[in-house]
């Protein structure tokens, strides 16, 4: 499965925030590769730097206050993205790498209809007639499992449930058919049944579109169910990296064991 050059090649990524009270290193020497159709999980507690890693991939970490460490490299299809122009990064975002965020209710513009937001994204790739754009938007919503897609185009985000909103956010992120999808805690705000549905949707998507998925989560269970490989982060550093089964069966780092224990306690308690 891991063949050819990687889509995304991150080496020695370091991000530090220069604040009033000194320098905080959020990410410290993280390296990973993501190939076509592959799913990689990044797991860690809050504050471990996993979200900053995810945002760095598309250049969405604000610099300043953040500063990329020397030697940090993020390559998309071999092209260096650290220090790339804003125009290049804009083409990368959405068109080549899509992102979905944690809170679907917050990620959609509250005063514009879902359809308008999809159509606007579709039109970034070139002129599209109103009827064609609506047709494609409605197909997209249907593909992402929203019932009565044509009618829901005119709905506002607040009329959607959390699961529906996350489906719509996914549809918008995937509208321009990016090769990589970065999902930052995509299921954390959703209740368990909907969580399962969204994860299944991501898996289908990966198979259907040969999508590379970078799944960021604090929940080892979520990652274990969706990814082959997992990267465990703590305090900005990678403490473990390998196939999910190995990491689950024989964690090398005590922190991973702690994460696993907390999970089994949660399972036993829940």
């Amino acid at each position: 499965m891991v063949t050819g050059p990687p889509l995304l090649d991150v080496t020695d990524l370091s991000v530090a925030f220069h604040g009033r009270r000194g320098v905080v290193t959020a990410v410290d020497g993280v390296s990973f590769r993501l190939h076509e159709g592959e799913a990689l999980g990044i797991v860690g507690e809050s504050g471990s730097g996993k979200t900053v890693t995810a945002l760095s991939v598309v250049g969405l970490v604000p610099t300043p206050p953040a500063v990329m460490g020397e030697g940090s490299s993020i390559r998309y299809r071999g092209e260096e993205m650290v220090g790339a122009s804003e125009a290049r990064l804009r083409r990368l975002r959405g068109g080549e790498v899509g992102i979905v965020f944690q809170d679907p209710a917050q990620a959609l513009n509250p005063v514009r209809t879902v359809g308008a937001q999809i159509v606007e994204t579709l039109r970034l790739d070139g002129p599209l007639s109103w009827a064609d754009a609506r047709e494609r938007a409605s197909e997209l919503l249907a593909e992402f499992g929203i019932a009565h897609p044509a009618r829901q185009l005119d709905a506002y985000p607040h009329e959607f449930s959390g699961g529906m909103a996350q489906r719509a956010a996914l549809a918008i992120a995937m509208a321009r058919n990016p090769a990589v999808l970065v999902a930052d805690e995509p299921t954390t705000q959703l209740d368990p049944t909907v969580q399962g549905q969204i994860l299944r949707l991501l898996r289908d998507l990966r198979e259907r579109r040969n999508l590379a998925l970078l799944l960021v989560s604090h929940d080892l269970g979520v990652v274990a169910g969706s990814c082959r490989r997992v990267l465990v982060m703590r305090r900005g550093q990678m403490v473990e990296d390998g196939p999910v089964e190995d990491v689950l069966r024989s964690p090398r780092h005590p922190y991973t064991r702690e994460l696993l224990d907390s999970r089994s306690i949660a399972l036993a308690g829940g």
Partner: peptide, 21 residues
Amino acid sequence: REFVLAARALGYSRRRILLRH
């Protein structure tokens, strides 16, 4: 707000985000 971050993540230009979002 997160929808502005999401709009940037979709590759929208600053002008578009300001005027339309």
